[in-house]
Computed example of a mutant assay.
Amino acid sequence: MCDTLVVLSGGMDSAVLLADCINKAHRCAAISFDYGAKHNDCELAMATALCQLLKVPHTVVELPFINRLFSSTLLQSGEEVPDGAYDAETMQSTVVPFRNGIMLSIAAGYAESLGASRVVLASHSGDHFIYPDCRPEFNDAFSRAVRMGTDGKVAIEFPFARLDKRQIGDLGHTLGVDFTSTWTCYKGGEVHCGTCGACDERKYALRFDEGKDPTIYAR
């Protein structure tokens, strides 16, 4: 039995969230999604290995229709992921339409089937201005819908909604998270490219400028 279903991408934010939930003595299971992102294979390998290490039950759900039908540079069917800072102008093309809404709907149904009372997602304050399905208004509305749709059996929670990515990185360091076992780069190469907006944000979060980021970057 579990009480918390963690949406686990294999990225640093969700890895820290899983570690934080376990540290707070929650009984966790994890769910990941293969939706055709360029970096899905890299992320999912990390998510699987992390769950094996922590002995957390892990389910991967395939959503091939997203890559086939949706438009985003993040997807294998899209154009190249842009380089540059993690800001609205650079990252707008990486938005996958209603991605969190789709994934959270599946997670809510799965949580109810497992008997878990809550689903947690690691979206943070830095995501809000770029991704519409990460904003507080969306989170509040979706949480209410899930409450109604499950007769109050499942709550959707966003524990990092008020944190920025550096605060999440600092929490992960405190919890002993091995960040070399997480993936961020949107380009999905053999190592992190070091030049895309996601890598730029990872460097900030893990204090690359202070020598605390263990990630290997191509540049």
Rank of each mutant, 00 (worst) to 15 (best):
G172F: 04
G172R: 02
G172C: 08
G172T: 08
H173A: 15
H173N: 11
H173W: 12
H173E: 14
T174K: 14
T174R: 14
T174E: 15
T174P: 00
T174M: 11
T174D: 12
L175A: 07
L175S: 05
L175G: 04
G176F: 08
G176R: 08
G176Y: 08
G176M: 09
G176T: 09
V177K: 03
V177L: 11
V177T: 08
D178N: 14
D178E: 10
F179A: 01
F179K: 01
F179R: 01
F179M: 02
T180H: 06
T180P: 00
T180G: 06
S181A: 13
S181L: 11
T182I: 10
T182D: 05
T182N: 04
T182Y: 08
T182H: 06
W183H: 09
W183L: 09
T184Y: 04
T184P: 05
T184R: 04
T184L: 06
C185L: 12
C185F: 13
C185K: 13
C185W: 13
Y186K: 07
K187S: 03
K187T: 13
K187N: 05
G188L: 01
G188C: 01
G188F: 03
G188W: 04
G189H: 00
G189M: 00
G189S: 03
G189I: 00
G189N: 06
G189W: 00
E190Q: 15
E190N: 12
E190V: 14
E190S: 15
E190M: 13
E190A: 15
E190L: 13
V191C: 00
V191Q: 09
V191R: 11
H192G: 00
H192Y: 00
H192W: 00
H192M: 01
C193A: 05
C193V: 02
C193N: 03
G194R: 06
G194P: 07
G194N: 09
G194Q: 03
T195M: 06
T195R: 12
G197S: 13
G197V: 08
G197C: 06
A198I: 07
C199I: 02
C199F: 04
C199Q: 02
D200Y: 10
D200E: 13
D200W: 05
E201Q: 12
E201D: 10
E201Y: 03
E201A: 10
E201L: 14
E201F: 08
K203S: 05
K203R: 14
Y204A: 11
Y204T: 13
Y204L: 12
A205H: 01
A205S: 12
A205Y: 01
L206Y: 04
L206E: 02
R207H: 11
R207S: 08
R207F: 01
R207V: 00
R207A: 12
F208Y: 15
F208H: 15
F208S: 09
D209E: 15
D209K: 13
D209I: 11
D209V: 12
E210R: 06
G211N: 05
K212Q: 13
K212P: 00
K212C: 06
D213H: 02
D213N: 06
D213G: 07
P214C: 08
P214R: 04
T215R: 10
T215D: 12
T215V: 15
I216E: 15
I216S: 11
I216D: 11
I216V: 15
Y217S: 10
Y217L: 10
Y217F: 15
Y217E: 09
Y217Q: 10
Y217R: 10
A218W: 04
A218D: 13
A218F: 05
A218L: 09
